[in-house]
Design a protein around this nucleic acid. Structure first.
Lengths: 241, 241
DNA sequence: CGTGACGTTGATATGATTCAACTTGAGTGG
DNA sequence: CCACTCAAGTTGAATCATATCAACGTCACG
């Protein structure tokens, strides 16, 4: 048994980007070079305020949440940001850039302002990188529709299963997972604010899933014990068009 | 009392487009000229299947719904299309173009394929038109976030009030409303599928709103009797960023 | 005079929230 | 090493919101 080699975090981001389309060696090098301009955000701190200032970032490690809060304190989480996801990089194309974002763990991100300038030129040499970034953004936007489906028409159990299936796919693309086991550094409060449930009810739902041998959770990691059953429960990818 | 003059439907579409930014006379003329290529879709019929065929349309009159259905028949409506809204016009920029769309009333739309070609060139003479179309699309995308907020964190009453406030704004932009009275040609089933409620519960919610003198509904029209109260109830536009 | 779509109603069941108490585990400082 | 604290998770009981089922009303249309 060897000690685990810790991959440098820009490698994770590159891996996510390549889940859309492979990059040229030149593009990979560009990311690596720019990734020295780093910033670290502590867990719980906001790190993107819409309209605050023009900026652009790519997450290298850690998780964040896009969220909105009602005057009386009710919070809704619209989606999660994982390594490789970007903010403000593609000319204001998504409504998600107008939503505040909060770090859920310690987050390392690179300043991508320079990258934005480079991409804005439209040089063919960076076409694949642009395509990858656009692809990730598109996936995130599409996730909004899944989210609406979950909240509007699925039961607590179905919703939770559906979110886990999505997380499985995303962590897998990032190379963060080990089979059907992957990191899920989210408190039950965060999960419940994403799923539109009370924290107590989410807790009971999770316990039912454990009792039914669908999942196992420990120390910020989750194991999906019966992916087939979960996928079925969630109608994952099972909608008409 | 004079007989009401029925505005030609392309005028409504133009008015909606100008709610984003005013068009040049040349652009207005372009729309009018292209609007002779029309198609009518009967209520209840699908008129946009994602991936089906490349196409582009602008709605001139009537209402449609973007929706998805689970295998067991549960339906979720993501949003509504009103006159002036377009599909397929802006190079696959929105996840909404990947969702099937159904006519809720008789819908008149114009074929905008030619317009798409014209806009793709990027001629400055049509810059404002492009901007308007993009603006409407952006509004629609932003609507997805409101929708998630409604479904995830608001009660039946709040959700319903919130949707009505949104409809008020949109029909107003289209010049379809008369003060706080506007057309709402939606069955309770459709409304409930948008709001993530059972049809029975929506019915009761509407009746409560009527009892409390918040709204009046008759013959496909709704009157908001107390906009202030409704806005307050819905926390309309009241979220943090 | 049927028939069908839409709306309304009551009774009942279930799912989800709330509140409050309790547990657990990971720091932290004495 | 212990006692303390704090955040996260767990549990039960009561309550509330919403769903489900089934029946009935109403209106438009052929």
């Amino acid at each position: 048994m060897r000690p685990t080699l810790k991959a440098p975090s820009e490698a994770v981001a590159i891996r996510v980007l390549e889940s859309v389309c492979t990059l040229t060696e030149e593009e990979r090098a560009l990311i690596r070079r720019l990734s020295v301009f780093r910033e670290t955000i502590q867990a719980g701190r906001p790190f993107w305020r819409p309209g605050q200032s023009v900026g652009a970032k790519i997450i290298l490690s850690g998780w964040a949440a896009r969220q909105r809060t009602l005057p009386d304190g009710r919070r809704q989480i619209f989606g999660f940001l994982l390594p490789g996801d970007s903010i403000g990089l593609l000319g204001g194309s998504s409504p998600l850039d107008e939503v505040s974002t909060v770090a859920l763990t310690r987050v390392e991100c690179m300043d991508a302002l320079m990258l934005r300038e480079i991409l804005a030129v439209g040089d063919v040499r960076h076409a694949r990188l642009a395509e990858s970034l656009k692809g990730l953004r598109r996936q995130e936007d599409a996730g909004l529709l899944d989210h609406i489906m979950r909240l509007g028409r699925q039961s607590a159990l179905e919703r939770t299963a559906h979110l886990f299936m999505e997380m499985r796919q995303r962590t897998r693309a990032a190379g963060l997972s080990e089979g059907d086991r992957f990191p899920l550094p989210l408190t039950q409060e965060v999960l419940s604010d994403a799923l539109g449930l009370s924290i107590v009810h989410l807790n009971r739902t999770l316990q039912q899933m454990k009792r039914d041998a669908l999942i196992e959770m420990r120390a910020g990691w989750i194991t999906l014990l019966d992916v087939g059953c979960l996928k079925n429960l969630a109608d994952y990818g099972q909608h008409d068009y």
